[in-house]
Write a protein that binds this DNA or RNA. Structure first.
Lengths: 124, 124
DNA sequence: CTTGACATACGAATTACTTAGTACTATAAG
DNA sequence: CTTATAGTACTAAGTAATTCGTATGTCAAG
């Protein structure tokens, strides 16, 4: 048996990103946005958004004939959860080895270091 | 159709971690290690390791009656790939918003900042 | 030689994820 | 009123991931 994803699956995430961007969106809105990047059927988007609703990531409200969806949780919270899950699964819960990778692959450079410094200062 | 995972799935990762730890391992080695944390069948482990071999993550060699497996690629390389895929998928390829999350959730503190600083110095 | 332990090979079952087709309904245009 | 349009509901189907059972073979102990 395959264990259920506790966080967003790749396709779900793709849709959620678009909804967060718009704050409210219809199936058609998302369908058209996705179409710019790849072939996809309208009903596929509908199914995904229905799933996202039953999973508690989207709320819907009827407006005229169509449903208008909006995020049930802020982006930061959901993405944060995904990051936490990733760190737990891949790095056994500690961020430091993750940082090592980021530095060695040059994802972190001086610029990003300044960002971190500034943020740490602000928190204090 | 669901796109094929280019990186390790959760269960595959769990096994790979144990193999990297040991450098070489038999199905029985991994089976016993996994058993300490959860109920699992011997053949399940065998199947997973066979899959990992066909996917190119493990190499096997017969020794007496059993196969001895060893990693086909260093841990750093594979984990690095997973991290890259995650950053691409979740943060559209840029590490900075990831860092923002790490700071805000207190995964990065002064200690980790020093680590980064030191590593950046060494690379220069 | 027989039997038990242990290994692999093969295949099946279940659930999740992803995609999309068909049927039906309601509104709007002519 | 009829028809085209646009929406939802329902169903189905294919692939991937995960788990494990059964069949089979080999070796060593008694």
């Amino acid at each position: 048996m395959r264990p259920k994803h506790t966080t967003l699956t790749p396709q779900e995430l793709e849709i959620m990103k678009l909804v967060w961007q718009r704050d409210t969106a219809t199936v058609r809105d998302i369908y058209e946005a996705l179409l710019e990047h790849r072939k996809i059927a309208y009903t596929t988007v509908m199914t995904m958004m229905k799933i996202l609703e039953t999973k508690g990531y989207l709320k819907k409200r009827r407006q005229d004939r169509a449903f208008v969806y909006r995020p049930a949780h802020p982006k930061n919270q959901v993405i944060g959860g995904m990051l936490r899950e990733f760190i737990d699964r891949v790095f056994n819960g500690s961020a430091e080895p993750l940082l090592v990778h980021l530095v060695k692959t040059r994802h972190i450079r001086e610029k990003e270091l300044q960002t971190i410094k500034r943020m740490l200062e602000e928190i204090k």
